[in-house]
């Protein structure tokens, strides 16, 4: 009996480390450059996601707006929040683009067409991005230490079970397979 103890101890240590410690240790967390509130902007600046996150005429998706779009309103401090004051002082006035960490950033060889999913497949933004658009603060960006990609698109506690949290190839393939739209690798890879 005593002979099995070191083996069991080793296995137990690794099981605890692998299940409890590793999933935390693999990510490093960093804050976004600006404490941006989608909620405030949805109330005051635009009604729909497309008002800021627009499609270009050729169908490509412009993604996060650039500074000149922000500076259209925030040329000077408008409100009373510290976040806005910092944003204007650190980015607008010196005309420096904030280096946003993109939760949905994809590997270089992935071709993802927003317009095919939004306009053709009629998916709503929250199918993938959750309640990102109604949030008051940006979540810290959790970056995988090895691969460099975000842990998830928009992880909130109640969302883990219901929708796709991370944008992995298996998640894409699963849906495409259900839709009968899985033809070849080059459908989504470039």
């Amino acid at each position: 009996m005593r002979g099995i103890f070191p083996f069991a101890a080793g296995a137990a240590i690794m099981l605890v480390a692998g299940w409890a410690g590793f999933p935390r240790a693999i990510y490093k967390s960093r804050p976004q450059p600006v404490d941006f509130s989608h909620k405030v902007h949805a109330d005051k600046a635009g009604q729909k996601c497309e008002d800021c996150h627009a499609f270009r005429p050729d169908g490509t998706f412009a993604g996060i707006p650039t500074l000149d779009k922000c500076a259209g309103c925030h040329a000077a401090v408008m409100g009373a929040t510290v976040a806005e004051k910092n944003f204007v002082e650190q980015y607008v006035t010196p005309a420096r683009e904030p280096q946003w960490a993109v939760y949905a950033r994809q590997p270089e060889n992935v071709f993802f067409s927003h317009i095919a999913h939004v306009k053709r497949a009629q998916l709503t933004c929250d199918t993938c991005h959750g309640d990102h658009g109604a949030s008051d603060h940006l979540l810290p960006y959790q970056e995988d230490r090895v691969s460099g990609y975000s842990r998830n698109i928009w992880q909130t506690a109640d969302r883990v079970k219901t929708t796709r949290a991370a944008m992995t190839m298996s998640a894409c393939v699963e849906c495409h397979r259900q839709q009968g739209l899985e033809h070849s690798c080059l459908d989504c890879h470039k």
Partner: peptide, 23 residues
């Protein structure tokens, strides 16, 4: 024995598989 147990235990956690994918 401890090391052997650790190795076997690790196989039953997500860590090695995840590291392969991430790499």
């Amino acid at each position: 024995k401890l090391a052997g147990g650790a190795a076997v235990g690790a196989l039953f956690t997500p860590a090695p598989w995840r590291l392969v994918t991430d790499t």
